[in-house]
């Protein structure tokens, strides 16, 4: 069997794929966090809970309403996004004049409440969600076996990240968002409804988390704690990429997923901590993050 640095190629590519899949979730989640932080200056600690809600909404759609994976991929993010719109209007909008810390505390509290509600109702053991028939099975590649669904996760999240990036960088609405991120008062003085822009942006960022949740449902089990587990790593990813940087969130998300996968092959003991070690190093050398702009 072919090897690289004494590691079987099959194991290496297997871990690389796993890393890419984790990276896909990191990228979508940190992208949503970056968009929200950039415009709203809110560190959205509820992001993990909203990701979990996406997975649960997909599960409920299937089990209570018989709505399958493909419609859920659209319905669940819209539903989770709307819950975000409500949260922003009712609670978060009251905090814009206060310190960042209040937004963090509020969203952290919301996350605990939401996770608690789901744990009470569904238990903590996790619920199964089947891979849709169209994406089951896999392909035997020369160097590895590629499960179709895992390939789909990587492709779908890349596409969503790219579409989001294009929407922000190339459209009129994106120009409003970029301008309001820099100077909301002036954009408002031009006649743009900035409060509405904030609401929509929060809803969109949260919908991205919901989308990631649906993508995750068939590969990870649908579990009230799934968001709490991943969100800590995602925050480290955001810090490494640079708070508020869109491209930074995408690139570091995928990149760190792959790094984590590689570490699993060469030094498995370090795989759980490698991202935090990188975070510490980046903070020492470049406190604003790899792609962050220092003010």
């Amino acid at each position: 069997m072919a090897t690289l640095f004494g590691v079987p190629l099959q194991a290496l590519s297997g871990q690389l794929l796993l890393g890419l899949i984790n990276g896909s979730f990191y990228a979508i989640l940190s992208l949503g966090l970056a968009v929200i932080f950039g415009l709203l200056n809110i560190i959205n600690f509820a992001h993990g809970a909203q990701y979990m809600m996406g997975a649960f909404v997909a599960w409920m759609l299937l089990n209570y309403a018989g709505v399958g994976y493909w419609p859920a991929l659209l319905i669940a993010p819209v539903f989770v996004g709307l819950s975000g719109v409500l949260l922003e209007r009712v609670l978060i909008a009251r905090l814009y004049k206060l310190d960042h810390l209040y937004g963090l505390l509020l969203t952290f509290g919301v996350a605990l409440i939401v996770q608690g509600l789901f744990r009470n109702h569904f238990g903590a053991s996790g619920l199964p969600y089947a891979i849709p028939a169209e994406l089951s099975g896999g392909h035997r590649l020369p160097f590895m076996f590629l499960p179709t669904y895992r390939g789909w996760v990587v492709v779908a999240s890349l596409a969503v990240c790219l579409a989001t990036w294009l929407a922000i960088e190339k459209t009129k609405l994106g120009a409003y968002l970029r301008a309001a991120t820099e100077n909301p008062a002036l954009v408002q003085a031009f006649g743009v409804n900035v409060p509405l822009l904030l609401t929509l942006t929060y809803g969109f960022g949260v919908a991205l988390a919901g989308f990631a949740g649906v993508l995750a449902a068939p590969v990870l089990s649908v579990n009230p704690n799934m968001g709490a587990d991943i969100i800590i790593v995602v925050f480290a990813v955001v810090v490494i990429g640079g708070m508020g940087s869109i491209l930074g969130a995408i690139v570091t998300g995928f990149g760190l997923g792959v790094v984590e996968g590689l570490v699993k092959v060469f030094y498995p003991e370090g795989s759980a901590t490698v991202i935090f070690v990188i975070m510490a190093l980046v903070l020492l050398v470049k406190p604003a993050g790899l792609f962050g702009r220092t003010a």
Partner: peptide, 27 residues
Amino acid sequence: PSRLIARLGVGYVPEERGIFASLTVAE
């Protein structure tokens, strides 16, 4: 709110000019 004042037909050029760094000239 300022957005409605602008809608009355008022255009504002701030002292610091307020050019957005993340936007092109055309944007």
